[in-house]
């Protein structure tokens, strides 16, 4: 029984990390139709900004989070303004362009900061575990879980309750007509891209105490995030949340039953079958086009 509860928590923790990485991707993809293959590199940059703040300014991870968000959002804004905005009418080219941006960012970090892995300390107040008998939950993982849910709620509120969200939804539905109503679509796009990048940066900062911080750390993460977005349904943040929960728990379940390698294969096969029979994903966005 304890093993099962431990494993359910492991799945939830994995899901929270997936959600953090995938949310930004889902927003950018859903809003702009841009498949951002540089997303993993934004995650990586988030971890490196955290590292820089920690080792040069002595700033703790929690205090660094807002700065990381703003910095990576600014980088995302710059990338959108300089490159991505020129390609909105050529969606396939954005794949190539963002892939290239990813390679360039990775190699810039490798040359500028160095290829070696970096150490980022986790927050001291969140070290240790909370245990009930044999059920042992890591405090930091609980924090990441709560934080991810918080970010999800904030994102939902941003899209559903604010003027910016209303404008964004209008632009998603029909760019030309919303421009007729005086919405500056390109500004909305730039801010959306920046927000998605900022979320990726936050994800990078949050996972840095759990993993190895290297220039290539984003490559693996972005693959999982794409799976989540595809399963969830394009453009739906609720779909993304549900899908990350499902992918996380399924991975944990297969890993417990068999092992991580087979677990991974199991999840991929399950996703292939799922997409075969429901290509639009779990909760596709309903948009009149």
């Amino acid at each position: 029984m304890e093993t099962i509860i431990n494993q359910i928590f492991a799945g939830a923790s994995l899901a929270s990390i997936l959600l953090m990485v995938a949310l930004g991707l889902a927003i950018i993809y859903g809003a702009m139709g841009v498949i951002n293959l540089a997303h993993g590199e934004f995650v990586m940059l988030g971890a490196y900004v955290t590292w820089a703040l920690q080792s040069f300014l002595g700033m703790g991870l929690l205090a660094a989070l807002p700065i990381v968000f703003v910095t990576i959002a600014a980088i995302g804004w710059g990338v959108e303004r300089s490159i991505v905005q020129r390609l909105y009418r050529r969606p396939l080219d954005t794949i190539l362009a963002t892939w290239g941006i990813g390679i360039v960012l990775q190699q810039l970090v490798r040359m500028g900061i160095g290829p070696e892995s970096r150490f980022i300390a986790g927050p001291g107040i969140l070290s240790g575990n909370t245990s009930f008998g044999n059920v042992v939950l890591s405090n930091y993982r609980i924090f990441v879980l709560v934080f991810a849910i918080g970010v999800f709620v904030a994102t939902w509120a941003l899209l559903a309750k604010t003027e910016f969200g209303r404008k964004l939804r209008a632009v998603i539905q029909n760019r030309e007509i919303s421009e007729c109503y005086g919405i500056r679509a390109e500004k909305v796009y730039a801010l959306t891209f920046a927000y998605g990048a900022g979320l990726a940066g936050l994800a990078g900062a949050l996972i840095s105490p759990l993993v190895n911080t290297t220039p290539s750390m984003g490559t693996y993460l972005v693959v999982d995030a794409f799976l989540v977005v595809v399963v969830g349904g394009v453009g739906s943040i609720f779909g993304t949340a549900v899908a990350s929960g499902i992918v996380g728990e399924t991975t944990a379940f297969f890993s417990m039953l068999l092992n991580d390698t087979v677990g991974r294969i199991g999840v991929l096969v399950a996703i292939i079958f799922f997409i075969r029979f429901r290509p639009q994903g779990l909760l596709p966005q309903i948009v009149r086009r």
Binding site: Q7, F9, A10, S13, L14, I17, R141, L210, V211, N212, T219, Y220, A252, S255, M256, N259, D260, T261, G263, R264
Partner: peptide, 11 residues
């Protein structure tokens, strides 16, 4: 055995 680059060891 876990896949190369595997980074979540909760299980």
């Amino acid at each position: 055995y876990v896949p190369l680059g595997h980074s979540d060891f909760s299980s």
